[in-house]
């Protein structure tokens, strides 16, 4: 794209005030509702109403002593860790194939791997429930939720890792092969270290997606609930609303930190890491 001197000055120019205001308004709209969660979670009132009354941390204290919540939290962490690791491994293999080899019927395979993202969740949930209960006849448990979560996180892992593998020069891998390393040594000593920011981003984001997933877990959970299901239960009773606000704020806090880290990793150019 050739930049004439005029357009170059335009490109560097400041954002007009009116446009900055519009952007700020949009960001306010995007974040507005979720920002209210922490605001009211510190308010000493069982209802989330204005005006704010007294500052309190009692909802958070109530949360830490809540056995059922801790149980659900631990279940969610286990599922999210397992699905993040499995989806990232499977996604890495796919990304490797898509970026380094001439894949036959590439668009077909790409479509298949994106399918879990496109299919409506209710169809996925209903199908998997029928599959596990009517066809395989296995009892519903954390395993069935985990299997479903691996399915829905594979597209995310694949997309992130394709972007990462495309971003660095594949001649590095070829040089390593020319210098006598076999495919496994090249993968271990060249590809993996270079892909590491992408792998970390994929692990974190798949963890978040699985940790927050409600609908499939709702269909596929046995006697043990995950955290989103536990929170859905809290929503039904007005008196448990403050606890749900406190719990939601904690999840929000950790999600935002994790996403910010991954976004910074992903925006970093690969050259800077060499």
């Amino acid at each position: 794209m050739s930049a004439t001197p005029m357009s170059a000055t335009v490109r560097r120019s400041r954002l007009p005030l009116i446009l900055s205001l519009i952007l700020a308004f949009y960001v306010l709209v995007l974040y507005g509702p979720v920002v209210l969660l922490p605001v009211f979670s510190f308010n000493d009132n069982i209802y989330a109403v204005f005006p704010l009354t007294q500052f309190t941390t009692k909802w958070y204290q109530e949360l830490t002593g809540n056995q059922a919540m801790l149980f659900a939290l631990w279940a969610s962490i286990k599922i999210a860790m397992a699905s993040a690791i499995i989806a990232t491994i499977l996604g890495f293999l796919v990304a490797k194939a898509m970026t380094r080899y001439r894949v036959p019927a590439k668009n077909f395979f790409y479509g298949i791997f994106m399918l879990p993202l496109i299919l409506p969740t209710i169809i996925k949930g209903a199908s998997l429930l029928s599959f596990f209960r009517q066809y395989l006849d296995v009892p519903l448990s954390l395993w069935t939720i985990g299997a479903a979560h691996v399915t829905v996180t594979i597209p995310f892992a694949m997309l992130i890792l394709i972007a990462r593998l495309e971003s660095f020069d594949r001649s590095l891998e070829e040089a390593s092969a020319d210098l006598g390393m076999n495919a496994w040594e090249t993968a271990w000593r060249i590809t993996l270290p270079l892909a590491m920011p992408g792998i970390i981003a994929s692990l974190l984001l798949c963890f978040i997606v699985s940790f927050d997933e409600f609908m499939l877990a709702f269909f596929l959970s046995g006697s043990q609930p995950t955290l989103p299901i536990y929170m859905f239960g809290l929503l039904r009773f007005p008196e448990s609303m403050p606890m749900m606000l406190a719990l939601g704020s904690c999840i929000l806090f950790f999600s935002i930190i994790a996403v910010t880290i991954t976004e910074m990793l992903r925006l970093k150019r690969s050259e800077a890491l060499l």
Binding site: L90, L93, A97, F113, P116, K124, S127, S130, Y135, A147
Partner: peptide, 22 residues
């Protein structure tokens, strides 16, 4: 490339195609 994609493909095939067929 088919070998590399096989694990993810089989997983999605079982979890989506088999289950939608069910």
């Amino acid at each position: 490339s088919l070998l590399l994609m096989a694990p993810a493909f089989l997983f999605i095939a079982v979890m989506l195609f088999a289950s939608v067929s069910t």
